[in-house]
Design a protein around this nucleic acid. Structure first.
Lengths: 246, 246
DNA sequence: CGCTTTATTGAGAATCTTCAATCTTAGTGG
DNA sequence: CCACTAAGATTGAAGATTCTCAATAAAGCG
C-alpha cells in the first residue's frame, strides 16, 4: 500500500477514502477509529458514477454486496406480475441491499435518479470484519434497525393518513434527511418525479399535483417544478401528524 | 449446571429448552449445532406466560432484549399524539424488538392477543455470542433482513391495493405463516379483532366486515367469527395480486 | 426548436368512510 | 345455568375523498 502502482484499478478512478468522506459520520464506519476505518476502507469497491436512469441492481440477482450512497439518489422498484411499485428512495449515506440478505437475492431493481456515486461493500468481507470490530457490528445492527423503524413509520403513514398528510410527511422526511447531512431542510430539489412520489405514497399522480397545489395555496410550501421550499415547517409538521384539518 | 438446585428460578417455572422446542428450526438458533445451541439456550430468559391483554413491552422503555414468541400472538401498537396504530402482529418463532436497536428504546407497546409465552434474549449477550458463532450472526442478519422485506411487501400492499386486495393479502400472509410452522394454512383462528385488522390495514372496521362478507359470498373463504377457512387459495392469491377484479 | 415526457387542471365515477342502528359474542355474577 | 352487560361485529344509507379519463400546459432533451 506504499506506492500508487499497487493500488487496484478502481482506486485510480477515485481516490476517495472513508477517512476523507464527509458522510463517514453518518455511514457504517461511523463509530470506527482510524486504523479500523482503514481496514473497513480496504474492503470497499468504488465504481464510476451511475448516470441518471442507470441500473445499480437488477431485481432477482444474487445478493453479494450492500451499497452505500455517496452522492445522488436512487429508487427501488419492485416488479410484481408486471406491476411496478416504487418501494424506497435512497439518499447519500443510506445503505442499499439490506433487504436482500435473507433470501439471498435483491428484491427489486434499483436505479439512479440522477448522477450517483456508490460504495460497494462485499457482504462476506463486511461480516468478517464485523466479527472483529464490535463497533462495526453494532453499527450494522443499527442500520438495519433504523430501516425497520423507518419502514414501520412509513407503514403507519400509508395506513392511516389522508393524501395531504401523506405528502406532508413525505416532504418532512426528505427535509429531515437533508438536514441530517448538512443541507438545507427548507429548500431542496426533488430527484424523483411526481409519478414516483405518487406510486410510492399510493396516490394517483394527479392527486400529488393537486395536494402540492393545495399546500402551496395554504402557504406551507412553495414549489416550482421539482424545487421545494418549505415556508412553514411547523404547520407542515402539524399537518403530517393529522392535527389540524382545514 | 449439574444439579437442579443450581438452576435459576425461571428454569423451575419452565423446563423448556431450545433443543426440545418445536420452533427451533424457525427461530434464531436455526443453524446452530447442539453444543452451540446449548450456549444460546443458556442466555435465554423464560417467564410465566402472558395472559390476554398483558403488556410485554411499554412504548418508549429502554431496549435491552429481543423476544422470541414461543406460543400465542401479540400486537405492536404505536401511540403517536394520542392516535393508536397497530403496526405489527407477532406469531410464534418471530422476533420482537429488532426495530428498537437503533434508537435504544422500544417504538411501541406490545401486548398479548391471547395467552402467550415468550423467550427473552438479552441483546448484549446475544451480540457477544454472535461474535463467536458466525451461524448465529448470519441468522440474526437474516431475521432482520426478513423483517425488512416483509415490511416492504406490506408497504406495497398498503400503497397500491384496494380493500379487497389488502384483506386477501393479509389472510394469505397469515396462512403462509401458519403453514411455515406446521399448522393448517387453510383453517385457522384470528387472534386479532376486526378493529385491529382494520387499523393495521388502514381500513375502517366496517370495511373489513364488508370485505370479509364479500369474500365469503364469492366462495373464497368461509368465516365464523374469528375462525377462517380458506376455500379457494389460488383465487385468493389472484385477488391479492390484483389480477382479477369482478 | 421541435418533440417527448412530465405536470397541471377539470369533471364524473368509484371506493371507502362515517354515522347510526342492529345483531352477536364473550365474559360476569346472581 | 341463565340472564345481563359490554364489547365486538355486521349491515344500511349518505357523504367525502380519491381515482380515472381527458384535455391542456410546461419542462426537459436531443
Amino acid at each position: 500500500m506504499t506506492t500508487t502502482v499497487r493500488e487496484p484499478r478502481y482506486r485510480r478512478m477515485n481516490e476517495t477514502r472513508c477517512r476523507t468522506c464527509s458522510l463517514s459520520s453518518l455511514c457504517l464506519p461511523l463509530a470506527l477509529e482510524m486504523p479500523d476505518m482503514d481496514q473497513f476502507d480496504a474492503i470497499i469497491q468504488r465504481h464510476a458514477p451511475l448516470k441518471k436512469g442507470e441500473v445499480l441492481i437488477h431485481q432477482g440477482t444474487p445478493f453479494n454486496s450492500v451499497f452505500a450512497v455517496r452522492s445522488g439518489s436512487l429508487k427501488q422498484v419492485v416488479n410484481e406480475k408486471g406491476e411496478e411499485q416504487v418501494s424506497n428512495f435512497y439518499l447519500p449515506s443510506e445503505l442499499i441491499g439490506l433487504d436482500a440478505i435473507d433470501e439471498g437475492i435483491y428484491p427489486g431493481r434499483v436505479h439512479a435518479l440522477e448522477t450517483t456515486t456508490i460504495c460497494e461493500i462485499p457482504f462476506n468481507k463486511l461480516d468478517a470484519l464485523a466479527q472483529q470490530l464490535p463497533e462495526l457490528r453494532t453499527q450494522l445492527y443499527r442500520s438495519m434497525s433504523k430501516e425497520l423503524r423507518d419502514d414501520r413509520r412509513m407503514l403507519r403513514l400509508l395506513s392511516s393518513k389522508t393524501a395531504d398528510e401523506k405528502l406532508a410527511s413525505f416532504l418532512i422526511s426528505l427535509s429531515a434527511r437533508f438536514r441530517r447531512r448538512g443541507y438545507s431542510p427548507y429548500s431542496f430539489r426533488l430527484s424523483m418525479s411526481r409519478s414516483d412520489i405518487g406510486n410510492y405514497l399510493g396516490l394517483a399522480i394527479e392527486t400529488v399535483s393537486r395536494v402540492l397545489g393545495r399546500l402551496q395555496q395554504q402557504g406551507l410550501v412553495a414549489t416550482s417544478g421539482r424545487e421545494i421550499n418549505i415556508l412553514d415547517m411547523s404547520a407542515l409538521e402539524r399537518l403530517a401528524e393529522g392535527e389540524d384539518a382545514p
